[in-house]
Design a binder for these strands. Sequence first.
DNA 1: CACTTGACCTGTCCGC
DNA 2: TGCGGACAGGTCAAGT
Length: 326
Amino acid sequence: MPELPEVETVRRGLFRLVVGKQIESVRTIDSPKSFPNDLASVEQFMIGATITDVRRRAKVLLIDLSTEYTLVIHLKMTGQLVFIGHQPKPSETASRRASVEYASADTRAADVSSDVADDLPELRFGAGHPNDSLIGELPDRSTRVEITFSDKSHLFFNDQRKFGWIKLFPTLEVPNIDFMQRVGPEPLEDSFTSTEFIPRIRRRQNTTIKAAILDQTVLAGVGNIYADESLWGAKIHPATRVRDVTDEQLALLLKEIKYVMNLSIEKGGSTDRNYVNAEGKRGSYIDFARVFRQEGQPCPRCGRVIEKTRVAGRGTHICPTCQVIQ
DNA sequence: CACTTGACCTGTCCGC
DNA sequence: TGCGGACAGGTCAAGT
């Protein structure tokens, strides 16, 4: 679900909200897959620890603790991190429902960047959870982990499909994790240019260009949304074989990947449904999507109706006029 | 090695 | 209204 822009948006929000907080307790529910560490190490290295940093690599979140341990978190398809802050009015403690401001991916960037957001005592952060638009108390049936801080605020890890996970590693070992070893460069780094991108993607000459940019070992962070969006931007049909794509097209494709991801971060990522937070703000990257989930709508460039098909085993959106297989 | 497909899960939506 | 099947933004482990 969450791709790089969504994870980055969550990172920014969490950084602002949880750095400096001290962990008081950790509760796991249905944990074998969602949080496979044994309870003893969790107790030893989490309880009493203070959060020192929130980082991101590819689609993985890294929450550093003062114990020199790090929570490594992959949200996969339906994972969600929800922060519920301390209720400032002691009288309203009957229900958390009443104390929560809901900020979806639609509005998160605005919340992070606006001065108003600093005045909000509570925020909910998540990404892509199908229940984003449902107001409910937490924990709910998708909650896998609940972290309670010493100020009684909470961080919930919800994950409907249980694909996501949290794992606790010594901070120094994080770079040695298999995923970290294999994952490709960060596409938004200024230093990542077509000089590096082109040879990396050409390792996958025989597959489709969409499969190639979804390959996390080629470059980090592209998922189905931004694959379709960037390919449309570069006027490349997703099913085109890499060998049939010119270097000029690849250079343009990288430019489009950077563009759509930066735009999405600016918009606070995407969610799969409309959502309005407590301030009535909305507007997400999905509102700016040119092809993703736009089947039946006119192509913003040429007016031809956008079609949905299947490439690399994934739902794929194209403009049949702008994007032709080479 | 490169590439494709199915599996992991739960929930929702769509057609009958 | 119920039921079966397809599908969902990600990655792995298998298979060819």
